[in-house]
Each structure stands twice: as C-alpha cells, then as structure tokens.
Design a protein around this nucleic acid. Structure first.
Lengths: 209, 209
DNA sequence: GCCAGACCATACGCCAGCGTATTGACAACT
DNA sequence: AGTTGTCAATACGCTGGCGTATGGTCTGGC
C-alpha cells in the first residue's frame, strides 16, 4: 500500500494543540515538526546536515516515521524552505516595515543581525548552499526583496536612482558579509558592545546625513 | 611520437619541468598536480566536491594513483590549502602592497574582486566551508591579515583607531558579501561596467576624503 | 468493542565515497 | 640485464545515507 500521505490539514482528525506540541516526550510527530527540525538543523549545521536518518535520531524516531510524512528528502527541504520564507517575511520584514522613519528603518536592518536571530542564521546557511536547486530560487527572491527594500529606503532619503541602487548593494553586501564573518567561527567574534559600536559606525557611514 | 618530449635531462629525484606539465595526455602525475586539481574543484564546486574518485576521473586516472601520492583525502586538502594560502599571499596581496598611495591601494582591493580572479573564488568557497577543521585556521589567518591590512590603510588616512577598525570591518564585510552575492548564481549578475560603477561607489563611500 | 487510519519500527537493497591490498608497467641507474 | 623506485589499475571491504516493503501499535469514532 503506497498510500500518499494526506498532508492537508483538512482530513486530520487530531487537531493537536495549535501552539508548539510542547517538549512532548511521547507525542507523535506531524509534518510541521519535521520541517521545524530541519530548519533547526540548517541553522546549526547547514543544509547538507539535513539527512533523513540523523534527523530521525534527533527526533527519537526512525525514518519509518519520516517516509510517512514525506515522499523524499527533497520534499522535506522544499516544505522547510517554504516555511522559512514565509516566516522570514513575517518576523524580520514586516516588523521593520512598521518603522516609519527611513533612516531608523535602515539602521534596524543591521541592528537585528546578531546571531541570536534564527532567521538570519538560516539565511546565511542557505546562502552558502545556493548551488542547490531548491535553495537558489528561495534566497533569490528573499535577497531581491531585501535589496529593493533598501533601494526604496535610500531613494526616500533623496538619493539618485543610480546611487541608491549601488548603496543598497553595498549595504546588503555588508550585511551578508558580516553575517558570514560573525556567525561562522571566531574571526569576528564581537561582543554585544563592540557590535553595537560597529553597527553605529555602519549606520553613520552608509546612511547619508 | 609526440613532439616536444617533456622528459629533459633530469637527475635522481626527477624534478619534472618547472612549468606546468602541459595538458599532457600521457604524463605521470605529481602530488602538486593533485593539489592544483583540488583547488580547481574547490573553485568550481566547493570543498565538498573534492572527493578522491571524482578527482581521479577528472585527471583520467584511478584512485590507485591518488593513494600513492597522499595517505588520505584529508592530506590532500591540507596540502592544497597550504598551497593556496601561499599563492594567495603572493598573487593578491604582495601585488597590492606594491601600490604606494593608501587611497588607491584600498580601492584596488575591491577592483580585483571580479570573478575572473581565481584566488578570490577559492576564498569565497572556503569561507562557505569554514566549519571544516582544516579550513577554519587557514581562512582565519587570511581574513585577519587582510582586515589588519585594511586597518593600517585607514589609519594611514588619518582615522582614529576605533573608527579605522570598524571601517576595516565594514569594508571587509562588503568585500565578502559582494563575493558571495556575485559569484554564486545570478542575484547580482553585474556586467563589467555596472561593476565598475559599483566599485567606484564603494570607494567613494568607504574611503574618507 | 472493534475497525480504520495515523504513526512508527525493522529489515532490506542500492549507491557513492573512503581506504587497503595486490599486482602491473615503465623509467632510470648499476 | 637486472634491480629498484615511481606511478597506476583492479578488486575488495566498509560506512552512511536514500528509499522501499511490510508489519506493528495506538487512537478516535461508530
């Protein structure tokens, strides 16, 4: 019986608490649980670490469970990436969009880059795996969105279109670079204050006054 | 048969022609050949792609050859990384060091980042593999050297120590970021002119004057 | 109560990559 | 000519990950 697992929420008789299923020693798993676990692994060890059997071990089950929820590893990755892209849009982006002042908004984009923010960590890891077929379009979309966001920010500050675009590129490259240099190992292990000062310097340098 | 016999008069340890051993259909391989091929693969597909058997196929031999030259895959990586670090020091760094004017020198660091420059491509790939035990110390050293280089450059332009350090970090992050964004896929596929303009913008923005 | 469906365990076949062992070929030196 | 040293082919065993097949267990609903 190779029944295709019904992944839609419609058929699920068990509603399972809407919030996190708790630490759950004995709870059964859902597809969403696997997706979340996959994103955790991506954040910690990168995309390549998302292997079915290690993931299963991590969740204290066997892959018999996995292949009920997903037809393949690829399917899991696809779902996890979708989930991240949506989540990233909500948590990181929409929050910043709420800020009125363009100058302040630009600065916040840098301030919230500390390694505590999971979504940024995942972004950085995905950037490193951009050769992967599933990853490429996702971070393509996200990056473009963000650069365009910066672009309009700079335009709002009165820069010419050409300058604004290049400044947006520069700012975004600095963002990507500092992510990579800070998150991975110790080359640039700045503590909170040092980082604070650095960000201020970046804002002063990259935001025209 | 083949014109230009590569085997000139050589003595005991067989130094083999100093230059490249040519495309060489039938020439034997040396350890250096494997190291160069490994670096090529790193540049093209990243560190993870450096596998023994694929490499052997690429060189049109079998791994029987490989394990004569190296005791393990790790040993090859180590040797290749050493070779790159040395080569990078010579080609990229020493050349720029020759430039007298601090302002011009800083700009050149950005100008020479186009994807044509192999050493930069390798650096970017290694940065993506910084979790690897052998890679981490290497790019640690290289990155530190470069940032310090920028630091002294900015100091020479009269910046305070704190500002110079932060500016160096910013500039280097921008360098790393633009590398990653340009080399990997198309998010930022700038053509030569666009890139030229961008670099000029970076220089104007990051170099005080 | 008991059946269906959701979830998981076990066991298997497959493949790619690492490393080993053995033998072969061919050059240079004696 | 024979010996030695250098480079390479072939064949093998091992591991870890993917995917399949099949059967087991728990749960809610009738």
């Amino acid at each position: 019986m190779t029944a295709v697992p019904a992944r839609s929420a419609a058929t699920a008789p068990v509603k399972r608490a809407a919030a996190q299923p708790a630490k759950s020693d004995r709870a059964r798993l859902s597809a969403a649980d696997w997706e979340r676990a996959a994103l955790d692994l991506i954040a910690e060890q990168g995309l390549a670490a998302v292997a079915v059997e290690p993931l299963a071990r991590r969740l204290s089950v066997t892959k018999g469970s996995f292949y009920w929820h997903f037809p393949s590893r690829e399917a899991l990755l696809k779902a996890a990436l979708e989930r991240w892209e949506k989540l990233d849009q909500e948590t990181v982006f929409d929050q910043i969009e709420a800020i009125a002042d363009a100058r302040e908004r630009l600065q916040q984009l840098f301030v919230r880059t500390s390694r505590e923010l999971r979504s940024h960590v995942i972004y950085s890891q995905l950037l490193k795996a951009m050769d992967h077929d599933l990853v490429q379009p996702v971070i393509e979309r996200v990056s473009t969105r963000r650069i365009n966001y910066l672009l309009t920010g700079y335009r709002a500050l009165g820069m010419s279109r050409r300058d604004a675009l290049n400044r947006a590129r520069l700012a975004y490259a600095a963002y990507v670079g500092i992510l990579q240099l800070m998150l991975q190992q110790k080359t640039m292990r700045l503590n909170a204050e040092e980082y604070q000062v650095y960000v201020q310097h970046v804002a002063d340098t990259l935001i025209p006054g």
